[in-house]
């Protein structure tokens, strides 16, 4: 009997990756949903005896879908597929009734293991119809970013012992003029600290910029168990720790997914000896625009928030596109 399988993810790229990871010789009918609401409708129509569900989606997210499934008592088995690898996220979805948790990026082997474990996969002579998915390159960038963000959030959560809310990243081309506006704002505001770090390798170059609001320092220090008054030296210490974790983990996860190696420059602390203005200098004028990934991290129940901005140079875009498209063949 043909099993209806539903894949729900806001990213076309992730839907395609998931669909490709399903065993070929399996008698299933695959449907796709691009968001939480659509997913619930399709479940009600019986299109998902088995559901692969993403967590971080705009609108109704994965947590909301799990809740609705429970409230409406919809007949489905849910496997959560997410880049949020914090143990806490894992526990939360299980408590909401999810059967299993698969880390992104999904691998064929892991999916097969999970299916075997629950006796869901029966090899059959029927080769299921591969579903065709239109993929947008921007969805690809978003997906790679989601996975990298999840790794960074996990490390941060481990260090702080507190759940980190996964942000929805904004990815777009920004004008250098806009960037200069942001910089001007950071400089005009002495309640903001920033660290900037460059990276280069395999035809891809860029800079990571971490912007931290000073009002977050006290809560951050108490989570890091730092004692005494939080003066300038300790603020710098916290800022460097945070940038080592967030920038380091993010770039590492990006390079692992895209399989490129890179060197990292030493971080520069802005606003202490160098102003951003001086740092950007003439170099910024060489580029008209830049591919920017913006993420706002928030620590749950604490007054801590920071923005991570990853900027790729214009001439890195062909190499990036190449590597992202090769991930889905």
């Amino acid at each position: 009997m043909t099993t209806p399988v539903l894949i729900c993810d806001d990213s076309s790229f992730a839907r395609k990756q998931m669909a490709r990871a399903l065993p070929e010789k399996w008698d299933i009918k695959v449907s796709l949903a691009g968001g939480g609401e659509e997913c619930l409708e399709m479940l009600a129509q019986g299109k998902g005896e088995l559901l692969f569900l993403d967590l971080n989606m705009p609108g109704l997210d994965g947590y909301g879908v799990l809740q609705a499934i429970r409230e409406r008592d919809l007949p489905t088995m849910v496997i959560v597929v997410s880049g949020d690898v914090q143990p806490e996220a894992h526990q939360r979805v299980k408590a909401l009734g999810a059967m299993e948790f698969i880390k992104k990026p999904v691998s064929i082997e892991h999916v097969q293991d999970v299916l075997n474990q629950y006796g869901l996969y029966l090899e059959s002579d029927v080769i299921h119809q591969r579903i065709s998915v239109e993929v947008d390159i921007w969805d690809g960038y978003r997906e790679v970013t989601n996975v990298a963000m999840g790794r960074a959030a996990d490390l941060l959560a481990r260090v702080l012992g507190n759940f980190v809310k996964m942000p929805i990243p904004h990815i777009n081309m920004i004008d250098m003029v806009d960037l200069q506006m942001v910089v001007k704002e950071v400089e005009g505001n002495d309640t903001i600290s920033a660290v900037c770090q460059g990276f280069i390798g395999s035809g891809i170059a860029g800079e990571a910029l971490l912007i931290f609001k000073e009002q977050s320092f006290d809560d951050m220090a108490s989570l890091m168990k730092m004692e005494g008054e939080i003066g300038e030296a300790k603020q710098l210490e916290l800022l460097m720790d945070l940038s080592n974790i967030l920038i380091g983990a993010f770039l590492k996860a990006i390079s692992e997914q895209l399989e490129f190696d890179f060197s990292m420059g030493h971080p520069n602390v802005l606003g202490r000896h160098l102003s951003m203005h001086e740092l950007m200098g003439e170099a910024a004028k060489k580029w008209n625009s830049s591919l920017a990934i913006e993420m706002g991290y928030v620590i749950e129940n604490k007054n801590i928030s920071c923005d991570l901005l990853i900027l790729f140079t214009e001439d890195s875009i062909p190499a990036l596109e190449n590597r992202v498209s090769s991930m889905i063949g």
Binding site: V159, E237, M240, N244, G248, P267, V269
Partner: peptide, 16 residues
């Protein structure tokens, strides 16, 4: 310790 625990590179600057 954090290098062992987090498995990421870590940077110390002269400003610290």
């Amino acid at each position: 310790d954090s290098v062992f625990m987090l498995n990421t590179r870590s940077f110390i600057t002269w400003e610290q």
